Simulated assay, not measured.
Amino acid sequence: MDDKLDTRRVRYFMQVLDSGSVRGAADVLDMDPSAVSRAIGILEQECGVPLLERHGRGVVPTDAGEMLAGYVRRQNSQKQHLMAQMDSIRKIERGHIDVVAGEGYVDWLMRHSLRDFMTTHPKITIDLDVASTDEIVQRVVEERAHIGMLFQPPKDDRLTSHQSHSQPIQALVLATHPLAQLGRPLKLADLLPYPGATLHRNFGVRQHIEAAEVSEGVRLPSLLTTTSFSALGHFVSAGLGYALGTRISLTPNATNPELVELPMKNPLLSQGRSHIVSRHGRMLSPAAAELLRCVVADMRRYADLAAGKDKPERAEKRAASRARSTAA
């Protein structure tokens, strides 16, 4: 295959895919669009099948184009892996890692794994992107990200999950909120009288909430719909209502004594799991493999703590918050 493919034309083809159009690729390559188009035409002749088809104002790969792109990405990945091994046989010194995660994991990553890793390996650059569940899966599968961190990914044989743990969905409210005074796991019907904030439907958390709504025959109204977990926390802090989210996504608010996390009764809201994933069969660079190991180890420690060790402390914090509210 390598003997039949011209490296330059293949590079043009991959740029067209990344840009979404021949003209966009030509701008990046600083070339005339007709020259790029001719190069792609010759490449299609060499392959014997069409590689691109028009879609609106841009182009999308055909099945053959997808196969070629996957082949090129695998070749590039193997080449990067080889070069990384040769450059750092004895110890990890240089490299670049692409990480993609749901926004709810960003604060935790920066407080733990990424902070520690970047301190230990100051010459390794990291690109941390925030994306939805579907986007994270796509980027990991297409090998545009080494490591993905997300809530309840769909079943996909192209993904390898290196660690997962239960991540129940809870309600975040002010300690003075009426829901915080019930003293029991909440039904979705308990939330109906109060305004709430939620995520858009392309988030796994929202999909779990909708499944729970169907099971209880309840439809929760949303005063705020957002793609930002941070916005959910600010919504609650401002006294505007409640928000539903996973515990790790609520971590930035955990130190605020005015906010409490309340368990939900619906079992569907306790079935979600956080996963750390990579592309199945992909050979990660030494740097990416080391960061993956660190994230997995840190997340296991976090899961152990969340499972029991810090429950008394959190109970004490809630009791103190309620006591202050009563005194006020």
Rank of each mutant, 00 (worst) to 15 (best):
D2G: 11
L5P: 04
Q15N: 14
R23G: 06
G24V: 11
A26V: 09
D27G: 07
C47G: 15
L52D: 12
V59S: 14
A64D: 13
E66N: 04
G70H: 10
S77D: 07
M83W: 07
A84N: 13
D87P: 08
D98N: 11
V106N: 05
S113C: 02
R115N: 10
M118A: 12
K123H: 15
I124Y: 12
I124C: 13
A131W: 03
D134N: 15
I136L: 01
V137N: 04
R139E: 11
V141C: 03
V141W: 01
M149R: 00
L150C: 05
R158P: 07
V173M: 05
G183V: 07
L188Q: 07
L199D: 05
H200N: 12
S215D: 13
G217S: 04
R219K: 09
S230C: 02
S237I: 02
A243H: 03
A254E: 13
N256T: 08
P257L: 01
P257T: 12
N266H: 10
P267Y: 15
S270H: 15
Q271K: 11
G272P: 07
H275V: 05
R282Y: 02
M283F: 04
S285T: 15
P286I: 07
E290F: 04
L291N: 02
C294H: 06
C294Y: 15
Y302A: 01
D304K: 11
G308D: 14
K309I: 08
R322F: 10
R322C: 06
S325H: 06
